[in-house]
């Protein structure tokens, strides 16, 4: 008989995992500070979620992403609350890939990152289009307007914009997590639930 979701989350959140997930939520919220300091045109706002999905597990990653979006809304970016379904997909999909051993080989990480980007674009597009009319108060809004001005409908324009930006963002996030986990000492990794995913 499959375990209830609450039990699965509790199984993952043992020992060092609980404070680590809390750190990753904070990392999701402050990643923008690092990219701004380095002047890199990427969001990397799901890097903590991906890290948790690999080192702890998918359920914790879902919790991590949802809590990060909830807190982002509380700290002055209210639209983030509507994108919780997107982070749920990111957490679940990355956790699934990690369990299948995709974070052991760099080429699988590249494929996984691109797939994740496409998936994130497809899930976020209907929310962005139907809830916000394609306007996310970001520079990428100009891309949506451009695609609309050349004759595409709103949903297609948002999907094209997402496909243009999300795969790169997720690919870089996946590669960073891959190199980070490769360089971590085994004695530290072994204290986390998903250490076998990167072994």
């Amino acid at each position: 008989m499959p375990k209830p979701i609450r039990q699965r989350i509790a199984d993952e959140m043992t020992g060092a995992a609980l404070p680590f997930v809390a750190f990753c939520i904070a990392l999701n919220l402050t990643a923008g500070q690092i990219t701004a300091a380095l002047k890199i045109p990427l969001y990397l706002d799901s890097i903590g979620t991906i890290l948790v999905a690999v080192l702890v597990g998918p359920w914790s990653a879902i919790i991590c992403g949802s809590a990060a979006n909830l807190l982002a809304a509380a700290f002055g970016n209210p639209s983030m609350i509507f994108f919780i379904p997107v982070v749920i997909v990111i957490g679940a999909f990355t956790g699934f890939l990690a369990r299948k051993g995709w974070f052991r080989k760099w080429y699988l990480v590249v494929i996984g990152g691109i797939l994740q980007g496409v998936l994130a674009a497809l899930v976020s597009a209907p929310i962005s289009a139907y809830v916000f009319g394609g306007v996310m108060m970001a520079g990428t809004d100009f891309l949506v307007l451009y695609f609309r001005s050349v004759g595409n409908n709103l949903l297609n324009s948002v999907i094209y914009q997402g496909l243009a930006s999300d795969p790169v963002d997720k690919l870089v996030s996946f590669l960073i997590v891959f190199f980070l986990t490769k360089n971590l000492p085994q004695r530290l990794l072994s204290r986390l639930h998903g250490a076998a995913n990167v072994g």
Partner: peptide, 20 residues
Amino acid sequence: LLSILSPLVLSSIVESIERG
């Protein structure tokens, strides 16, 4: 980015283990 994130994540895992 890696040179910034590596020490950050490493120190956080050490702190997490202590707290855990």
